[in-house]
Design a binder for these strands. Structure first.
Length: 270
DNA sequence: ATGGCCGCCCTAGGCGGA
């Protein structure tokens, strides 16, 4: 059986629901992990998702800001909320679906200054990363557990995950301290960064483009902020470029789009 | 070099985004 998992920072699920429905029709994911739903759980368009074929839902919302949700064609079991966010914002959830433990994360952006002593938002971001690392570090099942971690991790780790490494290296989302913290979290469970298996460096690969550009396609000043990681037990044996992993960049050109494009991974489960 | 654009909120400027 195969399981197609999508991750999308929708930047308001209520506003963007027609686009999510279109994406669901066209890409056909089994599971959709959303970030920045920007609403309370009771405001989530649960009925519309059920009618679109996603009756199984886990919603972790808060008023107006942040918020994550997972909707699924297959039954899911909610797991305890991960305690990665030191402010207890709605930025993390975990479910079990089709025998897989699935984490959906929205890591804090981190503000403007990459300095923990002057910028509490940056400290918050690093604390989140560190807590996630500690949590995975403490586990003893990393060699056999079937874990998928997706979300808006708000870090573009590689030189070719940003439009200009040189101009971005002191900009929050691409600083060495964040890249190191993300790598530590990834290594704590031997996660594989699946996108770069399918589309290796030095090919540029982006999932986010700022709204503050008249035409995002003109100079393509993007960043790869959205990620899908899989544990060792789920690592595919061979990678076919542009097949199983897709960054759906065309969605960025839809009318009134999210600033993030959705990404999908089709997992072939044995 | 700077700021550009969004979406939310006790509807209007402030906050958060990244």
């Amino acid at each position: 059986m195969s399981l197609k998992i999508a991750s999308w920072n929708v930047n308001s699920v209520r506003l963007r629901m027609p686009q999510v429905e279109r994406f669901a029709r066209e890409a056909g994911p089994d599971v959709i992990c959303l970030q920045e739903i920007k609403c309370l759980a009771e405001q989530f368009p649960a009925k519309a998702f059920a009618e679109a074929g996603y009756p199984h839902q886990a919603i972790c919302g808060q008023k107006g800001l942040h918020g994550v949700a997972i909707v699924s064609k297959h039954p899911l079991q909610q797991q305890p909320v991960p305690t990665f966010c030191p402010r207890n914002e709605a930025r993390a959830q975990a479910v079990e679906v089709a025998g897989i433990e699935l984490f959906n994360l929205y890591i804090p952006a981190g503000g403007d200054e990459p300095d923990t002593s002057t910028n509490p938002k940056f400290a918050h971001k690093l604390e989140y990363l560190n807590r996630a690392k500690d949590s995975f570090d403490a586990r003893t099942d990393k060699s056999f557990a079937k874990v998928v971690l997706v979300g808006d991790l708000n870090i573009a780790p590689g030189e070719f995950d940003v439009w200009s490494h040189k101009q971005m290296k002191n900009v929050v989302s691409h600083t060495q301290i964040e890249i190191n913290a993300l790598a530590a979290m990834q290594n704590s469970f031997d996660f594989v960064d699946i996108a770069r298996q399918y589309q290796p460096e030095p090919e540029p690969l982006f999932t986010w483009w700022s709204y503050r550009s008249k035409d995002w396609t003109q100079n393509n000043r993007g960043r790869r902020l959205d990620h899908i990681w899989v544990s060792k037990a789920l690592t595919p044996t061979k990678y076919q470029p542009n097949s199983d992993f897709i960054a759906h960049t065309a969605c960025r050109s839809w009318e009134r789009p999210s600033d993030h494009a959705p990404i999908t991974l089709e997992l072939n489960l044995v």
